[in-house]
């Protein structure tokens, strides 16, 4: 049984997504720790899809970008273009400490900055890596289910 719906965080300027969020994941330079957690979020144990969050294969199909890792130089342009490719209204989730503030990679020669330095961020999830529960909570905050 699913838990009762969470309060939708409208205070952050959240969009009305009618209980369904299509998500495109972008690895901007992650160590893949976050990816392991994302995999388990969408796996059978946590099953984020029952809350209306779904991973899609193209930014053209997406409502939101799920960005992990500090933004590396090689991925900066790709991230900008992916953001450009998402139809409006669009949201960005910065997942993990690296995405929020570059974490241990801050100041490294290949790092441009945090995700917020490249594209506007709407939701942040803390942790290195963030536990699945935290990711689920953030997603439920967006879907409102």
């Amino acid at each position: 049984m699913a838990e009762p719906p969470m309060e939708r965080a409208k205070s952050q300027g959240m969009l009305e997504l009618a209980g369904s969020v299509q998500i495109r994941h972008v690895d901007a330079g992650s160590c893949n720790g976050c990816e392991v957690e994302i995999a388990s979020v969408f796996g059978p144990v946590y099953d984020a899809e029952r809350y209306g969050a779904r991973l899609v294969a193209s930014p053209r199909h997406a409502d939101a970008l799920l960005v992990t890792g500090p933004v590396t130089r090689n991925m900066e342009m790709a991230l900008r273009r992916t953001y450009e490719a998402v139809p409006e209204p669009r949201m960005v989730i910065a997942l993990g400490d690296c995405a929020r503030d570059c974490g241990v990679f801050a100041g490294a020669y290949g790092v441009v900055g945090a995700v917020g330095d490249v594209v506007p961020v709407d939701v942040e999830v803390t942790g290195c890596p963030p536990p699945p529960e935290a990711i689920i909570e953030a997603l439920r905050g967006m879907t409102g289910r």
């Binding site: 193209s58 930014p59 053209r60 790709a78 991230l79 273009r81 992916t82 450009e84 490719a85 409006e88």
Partner: peptide, 13 residues
Amino acid sequence: RVRRPARLWDCGA
């Protein structure tokens, strides 16, 4: 709906 010109999606490549 509102239309917005966008780049051809090239997988960011």
